[in-house]
Design a binder for these strands. Structure first.
Length: 303
DNA sequence: TCACGTCAAGCAGAT
DNA sequence: ATCTGCTTGACGTGA
């Protein structure tokens, strides 16, 4: 069991998700931005390792415009040695990696051009992980997509489009229950048809579910992960008090999380904290869970 | 140097 | 018709 956080670290003195406007695109600007983002990613990973944070979500902004037609530069080759270096650190310290393409990626869209763009973006994500030589336990998590007034048809369209994907994408793609359209049960249906693993979002499930009992949820989603997929992944967050349902909290609610650990003590998975203050909440929780035998702890790491 | 409108891209429900 | 939330900031123009 590992605990991680997504994309951004506010403690290190760099920003690993720098980008620029499409209007100001140039090869030089691209190279310079990627250079910054990759160096910062390495810095964040080292920070994480020293602090026993062994799960991390890499930002989709790593390579700006990677799947946009404007980007014809071979960044893959130009930065190959950097990718390999980062990948070695990840593997040497047994770090778990995920990525989460953003809301524009809709594999079950009714518009073919959106599906095409989405596949191009998935290809970019898979490529990043491939260039780092990571195995199939490094995952790309995606929501099922839209409903378009017909959930059954839209669900089937997801399965068809998933089946047509390259092996390199399929081996990394997992689906996640969202907070208003596709519940855990829907995702499990898709798993039955395609074999795709299901990532469980505890917070989304609280806001929107199809009546699955909490206890069942953990064993049901865990079973969708094969040995080659690694430990099941789970997204965890708390509601920001006084905000509309679905808004993520600023910091982790310690009591709520300890209760969660208690109810799930017969399971093992990797937990992603979707919390605004990122690594700070993870560090606070790490202090508490250090003694929990389920957690993987590195001792006295120098890097 | 700073504030703030806007940024490649989608969807659906709320306002 | 427009805004909100989604992993979220950060770019860059205008003063």
């Amino acid at each position: 069991m590992k605990i991680g956080y997504p994309c951004i670290n506010r403690t290190v003195d760099c920003s690993g998700n720098k980008t620029f406007r499409l209007k100001s695109y140039s090869k030089d600007r691209l190279v310079q931005t990627i250079e910054n983002n990759l160096s910062c990613l390495l810095k964040i990973l080292k920070f994480n390792i020293v602090n026993n944070i062994l799960f991390f979500r890499i930002t989709s902004d790593l390579i700006p415009f990677a799947s946009h037609p404007i980007c014809t530069y071979n960044w893959q080759e130009h930065f190959l040695s950097k990718f390999v270096e980062i990948g070695s650190i990840i593997k040497n310290y047994n770090v778990r990696i995920s990525m989460h393409p953003d809301q524009f990626i809709v594999l079950n869209s009714i518009k073919p051009e959106i599906v095409d763009r989405s596949i191009a973006e998935l290809k970019y994500h898979a490529q990043v992980l491939d260039l780092m030589n990571l195995d199939s336990t490094a995952k790309i998590q995606l929501h099922v997509g839209g409903i378009y007034n017909n959930k059954q048809k839209s669900l089937e369209r997801f399965c068809e489009n998933y089946n047509s994907l390259d092996r390199s994408i399929k081996s990394r793609l997992v689906i996640e229950n969202d907070h208003r359209l596709y519940c855990l049960k829907d995702c499990l249906k898709i798993h039955e048809k395609t074999g795709i693993p299901v990532l469980f979002d505890v917070f989304h499930n609280k806001i929107f579910n199809c009546g699955e009992s909490i206890k069942d949820s953990y064993s049901l989603f865990s079973k969708t992960w094969d040995k080659s997929d690694g430990l099941p992944m789970l997204d965890y967050s708390s509601q920001k008090p006084g905000k509309t349902a679905g808004v993520h909290a600023e910091a982790i609610d310690k009591k709520d999380f300890l209760r969660f650990l208690e109810t799930t003590k017969s399971f093992d998975f990797d937990i992603m904290f979707e919390i605004k203050d990122k690594e700070k909440s993870v560090l606070r929780i790490m202090e508490i869970v250090k003694s929990d035998p389920r957690f993987i702890i590195l001792n006295e790491v120098r890097i």
